[in-house]
Design a protein around this nucleic acid. Sequence first.
DNA 1: ACCTGAACACCGTTCAAGT
DNA 2: ACCTGAACACCGTTCAAGT
Lengths: 194, 194
Amino acid sequence: MPRVSAAYREARRDEIARAALRCLERKGVHETSISDIVEESGLSTGAIYSHFTSKAELARYIVGRFLVPKVDGLEAQASHGAVIPPRAILTTLLRSFADEGLPPAVVLQFWAEAMVDPEMNAEMLRTAARLRDALAHALRPWAEASGASDPDVTALLTTRSVIALAQGWIAHSAVFGPQDVDSYLSAVASVLEP
Amino acid sequence: MPRVSAAYREARRDEIARAALRCLERKGVHETSISDIVEESGLSTGAIYSHFTSKAELARYIVGRFLVPKVDGLEAQASHGAVIPPRAILTTLLRSFADEGLPPAVVLQFWAEAMVDPEMNAEMLRTAARLRDALAHALRPWAEASGASDPDVTALLTTRSVIALAQGWIAHSAVFGPQDVDSYLSAVASVLEP
DNA sequence: ACCTGAACACCGTTCAAGT
DNA sequence: ACCTGAACACCGTTCAAGT
């Protein structure tokens, strides 16, 4: 039986997660020790372990909570039937990611974590599925307008490429420094001309 | 003064690196402990530390040695003046990567490492520079044939996008499983149409 | 010079004891 | 129930001693 409300518990988890995230941005995922998070959060080791079963679960919580930036604006436009082509969707996604998402360097480390930790992998795929659904919804009017025989399928298939290109932008930004969204996309588009 | 030849030393380093790589493919970068490598290589802890100053230096050696697949065929064709457009270069790069490069999951973990370890970052950029030069050389005839005012600059700028798209393919393959090169590229190209 | 393996400092996690 | 902090098992690295 909880002595404190579920809301209090969630707030506490968030507090710990935000302290951890500040450490991750400074030091990276596996350079950040529990004692760093203890120091940054002002709590004790045991306190953190009473809210998360492991460092890995804390990392998964951060992914689920902070990886995907809000794409609400996009979904709202789409709900009003606005036709937004894939490239515009991708541009909006990358811009909002640059503003509110996790820093590319941190995302890269979580992807790497997912290569090794099956539960992180599952969390990553869950998060990707959420993003994919949001994008598919936003692409639906465009798929219909372009006369696809099954607009839902077309929208869904297109999201896979949108996500792949977003991953390319994240990896490239992380390794080679911040990339301007527009010039990145046009440079990449010109390479793919047949 | 070395008691053994430089060639012996290099062979020993390679032997250790290959044993380490087998561990990395099985268990991931930071799940692989020195004692795993000790076991896999049949040597002792001290033996490994007499050839590499740290686990991090061993990882950097693996990157420098095994990350970039041979692109010799490409360079040979280009030397004979063959005009190969960017997309064909990218296709060849990804194919040879799928055949001989490090597994995408391992590459992702090295990128992540580079976010945290400045020396790994430097090794990564050195490796990227080598790849970029090879690609620029292969793109040179195409840049000239397409009437660029400065073919060298055009070729070099184009390589950045080729590398970015290759990174996208690697990240997407690592997170979502193996991706067929051709269908990946055409899906991604159709998204970027204006 | 190359190698051995015990010893050391530090990390993630646990757990008896407090409130 | 939530929290404390000492204790534990394990990791990367070092180093005295062997060949």
